[in-house]
C-alpha cells in the first residue's frame, strides 16, 4: 500500500473533507506545490485555483478554491478555503455570469476598499473559468 497523508479541507461553514490521499497539488500564491506524505512543514497562502487530489496514482478529484491558506506538516495538509466547490459541480455559463457580475461591480465601485474587493472577485471568477477550460 502506498503512503498517504491526510487532507483536511475546511470552509467557513463546514469541514468539507478529511480523508487520506496520496498527493494533493495546491495552487500556492507563489506557484503550485505538491504535497506528498512526510512533506516538510509549510504555511502558504493560496491563490484562486484548483486543488488536485491524487488517489490510486491518478487525479481522483478536482476542487476549485477561491483563496485561503494551507498548512502542511508531515502528517497532514490542512486547507482553509474561503470557498470550495468540486469542479464537477460548476457550470460554465454560471461562471461566465459571475465574471460579468464581478466586472460590473468593479466598474461601479467607488471607494478603494470596494474596488479592491471587486478586483478580487474578478480574479476569482477568471480563475474559475480557466479551471473549467483546462
Amino acid at each position: 500500500m502506498t503512503d498517504t497523508t491526510v487532507l483536511e479541507l475546511v470552509s467557513p461553514s463546514a469541514l468539507l473533507k478529511s480523508e487520506p490521499v496520496e498527493m494533493v497539488v495546491v495552487p500556492g500564491t507563489e506557484g503550485n506545490f505538491g504535497v506528498l506524505p512526510k512533506h516538510a512543514p509549510l504555511i502558504s497562502t493560496i491563490r484562486p485555483g484548483v486543488i488536485d487530489i491524487y488517489m490510486g496514482g491518478k487525479v481522483s478529484e478536482r476542487i476549485f478554491v477561491a483563496g485561503g491558506v494551507a498548512e502542511v506538516n508531515p502528517e497532514r495538509c490542512t486547507i482553509l478555503a474561503e470557498e470550495a466547490v468540486s469542479i464537477a459541480d460548476i457550470k460554465a455559463d454560471e461562471a461566465q455570469t459571475r465574471l460579468e457580475a464581478a466586472k460590473a461591480a468593479f466598474e461601479a465601485a467607488k471607494t478603494p476598499h470596494e474596488k479592491a474587493n471587486a478586483e478580487r472577485d474578478v480574479e476569482i471568477a477568471a480563475a474559475l473559468i480557466t479551471a473549467l477550460t483546462n
Partner: peptide, 17 residues
C-alpha cells in the same frame, strides 16, 4: 501532542501571510 513544533517554512513571508 503531534510534534508539530517543527519549524515551518512560509510562502510568502510570515508578515505577508
Amino acid at each position: 501532542g503531534k510534534g508539530a513544533s517543527a519549524i515551518y517554512e512560509y510562502e510568502p513571508s510570515e508578515e505577508a501571510i
